[in-house]
Computed example of a mutant assay.
Amino acid sequence: MRVTEKGQVTIPKPVRRSLGIEPGSEVEFVLRDGEALLRRVEPETDEREKEVAAFMNHMRSFIGVMDLGGLSTDEFMSLLRD
């Protein structure tokens, strides 16, 4: 494998597949005893972010299915504002 002038190398497809590396994935190199270990970095999401994502997914499931009981959009929005 050859290194480009910019210090870049191509990660072989079997290695990408094995590590689950896709376009946009984060990777890191760890130096250990004169060798470099490549590993995929798991995206860090805190508990709050997971809760927000779950809530947003739940809310998306209601798009276009809300029954306003005969109220117009303006009437419904007025109820929300009061």
Rank of each mutant, 00 (worst) to 15 (best):
M1C: 06
M1I: 03
M1Q: 05
M1A: 13
M1D: 06
R2I: 03
R2M: 07
R2W: 08
V3C: 05
V3R: 03
V3W: 03
T4C: 04
T4R: 00
E5L: 12
E5S: 12
E5F: 04
E5W: 00
E5A: 14
E5T: 01
K6W: 00
Q8W: 00
Q8D: 00
Q8P: 00
Q8M: 04
Q8F: 02
V9H: 01
V9A: 14
V9C: 09
V9D: 00
T10Q: 11
T10Y: 11
T10W: 10
I11D: 13
I11N: 12
I11E: 10
P12K: 06
P12M: 03
K13T: 10
P14H: 07
P14C: 04
P14S: 07
V15F: 11
V15T: 09
R16E: 09
R16H: 01
R16T: 06
R16S: 10
R17T: 11
S18M: 07
L19K: 14
G20W: 12
E22G: 02
P23N: 11
G24T: 03
G24P: 07
S25F: 09
S25L: 08
E26T: 05
V27P: 04
V27D: 08
E28W: 02
V30P: 04
V30S: 09
V30K: 15
L31I: 08
L31V: 11
L31T: 03
R32N: 11
R32H: 13
D33V: 03
G34K: 01
E35C: 09
L37K: 10
L38G: 07
R39E: 09
R39N: 07
R39Y: 08
R39V: 06
R39P: 08
R39M: 12
R40T: 02
R40H: 05
R40W: 06
V41S: 11
P43C: 05
P43R: 14
E44K: 05
E44C: 01
E44P: 00
E44W: 06
T45I: 08
T45Q: 14
T45D: 05
D46C: 09
E47A: 15
R48D: 07
E49R: 14
E49V: 09
K50C: 02
E51L: 15
E51W: 09
E51S: 10
E51G: 02
V52I: 15
A53L: 12
A53M: 05
A54V: 01
M56F: 10
M56I: 08
N57V: 03
N57A: 15
H58Q: 10
M59V: 11
R60P: 00
R60V: 02
S61H: 06
S61F: 03
F62Q: 02
F62K: 06
F62N: 01
F62W: 13
I63F: 12
G64P: 00
G64R: 00
G64N: 01
V65N: 12
V65P: 01
V65Y: 06
M66N: 01
M66L: 15
M66S: 04
M66I: 13
L68T: 08
G70P: 02
G70R: 02
L71Q: 11
L71V: 01
L71W: 06
L71S: 10
T73S: 09
D74Q: 14
E75F: 10
E75K: 10
E75T: 05
F76L: 06
M77E: 12
S78F: 05
S78P: 00
S78N: 10
L79F: 12
L79K: 15
L80A: 11
L80Y: 08
L80G: 13
D82S: 13
D82W: 08
